[in-house]
Simulated assay, not measured.
Amino acid sequence: MKRLFLSIVILFVISSYSFSQSVGLKTNLVHWATTTPNLGLEFSFNRKVTIDIGVGYNPFVFKDNKKVQHWIVQPELRYWTCESFNGHFFGIHALIGEYNVGGVDVPLGRLKDLKEYRYQGYGYGGGLTYGYQWILSKRWNLEASLGAGYVYLDYDKYPCAKCGTLLESNNKNYFGVTKAAVSLIYLIK
């Protein structure tokens, strides 16, 4: 929780120093679909380069102790093929987060254990991103992006969503999708 607070403070301190022509305030609709409130800021350094910093936090526990609790901070440096906040971009991103997930029925490969077990730990990593941004109006844009890369997961495994008996402590190297976003953006400057 302290790390999340520190990350949010850093995000807003950076936003107070506008060293750019444009600033975009954004939210990732994909995160909202997983009940994760989120906020991002993107700063334009020049016509071709921006930095995007997004944070998300999910504190919720649902019926039958189902949870996908987590926080994540994901900064990204972007290069635009046309101009900032318009068209195609390529990026390099990092991520750090903490999670407590269990009791969720996901019938997909690696995630199918989430129904019977609870995993709690940290993740660190990064990757490459491709995206596209559409201009909707003078102040509003829509963005779609997808990133792939590496995440180091350090976790504790428990026998069920409510149980506190530790089964194992381990780590895992993950290669795959590290970012997925459909974001609504409000341009401040």
Results as ranks from 00 to 15, higher is better:
residue 181 A to R: 03
residue 151 V to P: 04
residue 166 L to W: 04
residue 154 D to Q: 08
residue 131 G to H: 02
residue 142 L to D: 01
residue 148 A to N: 03
residue 148 A to W: 02
residue 137 S to Q: 04
residue 168 E to Q: 13
residue 139 R to K: 13
residue 177 V to F: 01
residue 168 E to N: 07
residue 142 L to T: 02
residue 180 A to W: 02
residue 171 N to W: 11
residue 180 A to L: 11
residue 159 P to M: 15
residue 162 K to G: 11
residue 138 K to Q: 13
residue 173 N to K: 12
residue 165 T to P: 04
residue 148 A to T: 13
residue 133 Q to V: 15
residue 170 N to S: 15
residue 181 A to V: 08
residue 153 L to Y: 10
residue 137 S to D: 09
residue 156 D to R: 01
residue 169 S to N: 12
residue 146 L to T: 02
residue 169 S to V: 06
residue 145 S to E: 02
residue 140 W to N: 05
residue 166 L to Y: 03
residue 157 K to T: 14
residue 148 A to V: 14
residue 136 L to G: 05
residue 151 V to E: 04
residue 163 C to H: 01
residue 152 Y to N: 12
residue 138 K to A: 14
residue 155 Y to K: 03
residue 134 W to C: 09
residue 146 L to M: 12
residue 153 L to Q: 03
residue 133 Q to S: 13
residue 141 N to P: 03
residue 169 S to L: 00
residue 173 N to L: 00
residue 178 T to L: 08
residue 173 N to H: 14
residue 131 G to T: 03
residue 160 C to L: 08
residue 170 N to I: 04
residue 181 A to T: 06
residue 134 W to L: 15
residue 132 Y to P: 05
residue 156 D to A: 06
residue 147 G to E: 01
residue 178 T to W: 03
residue 162 K to H: 14
residue 166 L to E: 02
residue 151 V to L: 11
residue 138 K to F: 00
residue 180 A to S: 10
residue 144 A to E: 04
residue 163 C to L: 10
residue 147 G to L: 01
residue 155 Y to R: 06
residue 175 F to C: 08
residue 178 T to F: 02
residue 138 K to E: 15
residue 168 E to R: 00
residue 142 L to A: 12
residue 167 L to Q: 14
residue 180 A to M: 08
residue 171 N to M: 00
residue 150 Y to F: 13
residue 147 G to Q: 04
residue 179 K to V: 05
residue 142 L to I: 12
residue 137 S to A: 13
residue 154 D to F: 00
residue 171 N to S: 15
residue 179 K to M: 13
residue 178 T to S: 12
residue 146 L to I: 14
residue 130 Y to L: 12
residue 153 L to W: 08
residue 175 F to R: 04
residue 176 G to F: 04
residue 151 V to M: 10
residue 167 L to E: 09
residue 143 E to V: 01
residue 161 A to Q: 03
residue 178 T to D: 01
residue 147 G to S: 07
residue 165 T to A: 07
residue 146 L to W: 02
residue 140 W to Q: 05
residue 133 Q to E: 15
residue 135 I to C: 07
residue 179 K to F: 10
residue 137 S to R: 03
residue 174 Y to K: 07
residue 155 Y to Q: 06
residue 173 N to F: 00
residue 172 K to Q: 15
residue 146 L to G: 12
residue 159 P to I: 14
residue 144 A to L: 08
residue 137 S to L: 09
residue 168 E to A: 08
residue 132 Y to A: 06
residue 140 W to E: 06
residue 166 L to N: 07
residue 176 G to K: 04
residue 173 N to T: 05
residue 150 Y to L: 10
residue 138 K to I: 09
residue 174 Y to F: 11
residue 165 T to G: 11
residue 164 G to E: 07
residue 139 R to S: 15
residue 147 G to Y: 01
residue 158 Y to M: 14
residue 153 L to A: 12
residue 134 W to H: 12
residue 146 L to C: 10
residue 132 Y to S: 10
residue 140 W to I: 11
residue 149 G to K: 03
residue 163 C to T: 06
residue 158 Y to T: 14
residue 169 S to G: 10
residue 168 E to M: 06
residue 181 A to C: 13
residue 136 L to E: 03
residue 144 A to Y: 05
residue 131 G to V: 04
residue 156 D to N: 10
residue 173 N to Q: 08
residue 169 S to H: 09
residue 162 K to P: 00
residue 172 K to Y: 09
residue 170 N to D: 15
residue 161 A to M: 03
residue 177 V to S: 07
residue 132 Y to N: 07
residue 179 K to R: 14
residue 139 R to P: 02
residue 168 E to L: 06
residue 167 L to I: 15
